[in-house]
Design a protein around this nucleic acid. Sequence first.
DNA 1: CGGCTCATTGAGTCGAGTCAACACCCGTGG
DNA 2: CCACGGGTGTTGACTCGACTCAATGAGCCG
Lengths: 257, 257
Amino acid sequence: MTVRLVYSEHPPKERPHPMSGRVSCNDCSLSPICLPLAVRPDELEQLDSIIRRGRAMKRGEHLYRAADPFDAVYAVRSGALKTYSVSEEGEEQVTGFYLPGEIVGMDGISTAHHVSSAKALDTATVCEIPFERFEYLSARIPTLQHHFFSLMSREIQADRELHLLVSKKSADDRIAALLLSISARHKRRGLSGSAFRLPMSRYDIANYLGLAVETVSRIFTRFQQQGLLRVEGREVEILDRGGLCGNAPQEILEKQG
Amino acid sequence: MTVRLVYSEHPPKERPHPMSGRVSCNDCSLSPICLPLAVRPDELEQLDSIIRRGRAMKRGEHLYRAADPFDAVYAVRSGALKTYSVSEEGEEQVTGFYLPGEIVGMDGISTAHHVSSAKALDTATVCEIPFERFEYLSARIPTLQHHFFSLMSREIQADRELHLLVSKKSADDRIAALLLSISARHKRRGLSGSAFRLPMSRYDIANYLGLAVETVSRIFTRFQQQGLLRVEGREVEILDRGGLCGNAPQEILEKQG
DNA sequence: CGGCTCATTGAGTCGAGTCAACACCCGTGG
DNA sequence: CCACGGGTGTTGACTCGACTCAATGAGCCG
C-alpha cells in the first residue's frame, strides 16, 4: 500500500496559523478549551498581558529539560509535545503527550526546577505563562485559581487512569485507549475524531504504554486486519469505535479541559 | 516463626493521640509536614478556623465514595487510607496510600464530585478542609496558594514515578520501591525508617503495583531469604537498604511534603 | 467450633518481551 | 542520477516473568 492518506489536518495547519504569533487569547481559536475559558472578558486582558505568545519550535527541540529552573508553564498552540524523564540507568520514560489547548510543565511547581523534559514531536508553537505572575493573577481572579486547581486535578485523574491502564489492561486495551484518547482530544478542538495523524512515533507510544515497539506494531496490524482501524504509518482512521471500546472499556483517558 | 515483632509504632499511637480530636494545628506534631508549614503563625489561625479537626474513622470505613459531591480535601492525622476507583467491569484499582501528614481527595476538584473512593485501612483520624473556604483563604495567603499548587504538583510527580515503575520495572523493583517509599515517609515523621508496620494488605499492594497477590507474597519471602528484609505478616524490617535500592534504582517514590 | 479473610506455596500456562532480519523513507553526497 | 546510511516500522521465532489455578495454613470473630 503506497497511497498517501490525505485526511490528516496537518497540512493545512489549523488557524491560528503558527506564523501569526501575535494573536491574543481573544482571537485564538483554542481559547474555549484553554486557560481563557475561566476568565471574564475584562479579566482576560490581564491574563493576556502576562502571556508570551507564539514561541515557535522545531521538531525535536526542547521546551525545557529536567533540572532546568522552573518559571513558567506552557499552553500548546499548535503541533504536539511529549514529556519524558530519564532514570539513572538512562532509560527514557515518556510521561505524556500534549496537544493544542493543553498545559504542559505543571510537574515542576513543587521543586522550582523541572523534573522532566518536554520536547516538540513536530513543528509546534507554545504560549509561555510565567508562573510567578500567574500565581499573583490567580490570587486576584478566583475563577482562574479554581480553573488551575481543576487542571492539575484533571492531570492527576488522567494519571490515575493511565495507572489502571498500564497495571491491569492488556496491550490491546492500552493501544485502543490511547487512540480513543487522542481521538477525543481532536474532536474537542472541532477536528475529525475519526481520522487524524499521530504526532508520535511507535517508539514513543510503546514507551508511554509500557510495551515493546514490536508489540505496538503487531497490534496496529491486527487492529487493521480486524477492521477496527485503517493505519498508514502515522495516519489513522478509526473504523469501528465500538470494537475499540470493547478493547478499552474505560471511557476515554482524557487529559484536560 | 510465631514471634510477634514489636518494633511497630502502632501501639503506642503517635501523639497527637486520636482521642484528642480538638488539637489545633499549632499543637499538632504533624504541622511541619502538613499544610501549616506554608503559613505564618498569624495566618495559621485563619487556616485553623476553617478546618474541621479529628474526624475518627474505623477500619474499612469510607471517607468518601466515587460520585459523592466534592467539597473538601482531607489531611490524614493518624492511621492510613487508600484511594481506589472501580472500572465498569467492577475491578478495583488502588490509586494511592495516604499516611499521616498527607492530603487526600485532590482528584475531585475538577469534576465537583469525587472520581475515586477513600477508605480507612486502619483506625484513622482525618482533618477536613472545606475546599471552597480553602480556595478563598489561599487567594489571600500567597504562600498557602503556592504550597497547594506544590502539593498537587508533587502528586503528579509521584504518579509519574509510579507510571515508570509499573510500566518498566520488574516485580522485584516495584515492591522494593514501595517499601522504600513507605520507609521514607515514616522517617519524615520522625519515626523509624527501617522498621514499621504496613497498613495495607498484600492484596492492596499487589493491586496498586499491578501484580498478582501470589507474586507479592513470593517476593516478600525471597527478599527475606536474601537477607534484605525481615517480614512477619505486615511487620517489616529493612535489613539491607542498599540491596533493596539495587532493586529499586530510582530514589524513593515520595508522595508529598 | 465453623466460617471467614488473609497469606503462602507449588505446578503449569501464556502474553508480551527479546533477538534478529528485513522493508521503507528520506536526506546526503559521490 | 543512483548509492549509501540512518531512522522508523514491520514481521517471525523463541524465551521467560508473572499470571492463573489449586491447595494449605494462620489468625480472627461470632
